[in-house]
């Protein structure tokens, strides 16, 4: 049957846009974290400026998904492929927003110096960046094992987040002057932790795409 040509091209476009979006989100997190470590407001502003591009891709994915559903009447795996593309793009869009939130913390702290060099937050972000890459890779390869492995990394992220919170609480208790920074850095921990949860959601979408059932990897 030749009539699938158009459809297959559309499905491929969806995948390409998701891959591009994933790359941009991973870079947004990397750039916002490097801006935070140096409290570089310029770099932070660049992250904020790039975000609309991520949002635009999400809109394009949503439009193309709607068009394919309306014109091709997809069923079974084709249908899941489109549903999953819509879901993943909305997860990625949120991840982009959370990276912007980190960049905005840098802007709030503009002109200050960090009370101490950051260790755990960058470590956490590094794990989450590789989760983003792996989540997109597991989507491209339809690799359920990689999706599960990636979701397991979320446990490390959660553990680091708890550790960071404890550290920030004791800093604030010891020296009230640190409260503003410690609060903002706690927020950053929270943002990174949320990004990891969205990456885990992507893993769930990959499992749904491949086997047609929804696991809960966020446990």
């Amino acid at each position: 049957m030749v009539t699938r040509r158009e459809f297959d091209i559309g499905l491929e476009q969806l995948q390409n846009m998701l891959v591009e979006m994933g790359g941009r989100v991973e870079r947004a997190l990397a750039d916002s974290m490097s801006a935070l470590e140096k409290l570089d407001a310029e770099a932070a502003r660049a992250v904020v400026k790039e975000d609309p591009l991520i949002n635009q891709i999400e809109e394009k994915i949503s439009d193309l998904g709607a068009k394919l559903i309306a014109t091709q009447q997809p069923v079974a795996k084709d249908l899941r492929r489109i549903l999953v593309a819509l879901k993943i793009s909305s997860d990625l869009e949120r991840m982009g927003d959370l990276s912007v939130d980190i960049a905005k913390v840098v802007l709030r702290l503009e002109g200050q110096t960090l009370m101490k060099p950051l260790h755990d937050l960058p470590r956490m972000a590094l794990i989450v960046r590789s989760m983003i890459v792996e989540s997109i890779q597991s989507y491209i390869d339809e690799n359920v094992d990689l999706a599960y492995k990636m979701a397991k990394d979320d446990d490390q992220v959660d553990a680091l987040y708890s550790q960071i919170l404890r550290e920030m609480f004791s800093l604030m208790a010891e020296n009230p002057k640190t409260v503003t920074q410690a609060m903002y850095l706690s927020f950053v921990g929270r943002y990174i932790e949320r990004i990891a949860d969205h990456a885990t959601n992507i893993g769930e979408s990959v499992v749904f795409l491949v086997v047609g059932k929804r696991p809960d990897l966020n446990q």
Binding site: F7, A76, D78, L79
Partner: peptide, 20 residues
């Protein structure tokens, strides 16, 4: 189930218009 998640690949291929 047949139109969202069939168990056989050939079912999926047929209803998706890959052959027939």
């Amino acid at each position: 189930r047949m139109f969202t998640n069939p168990s056989r690949k050939s079912t999926d291929d047929y209803i998706s218009g890959r052959f027939g």
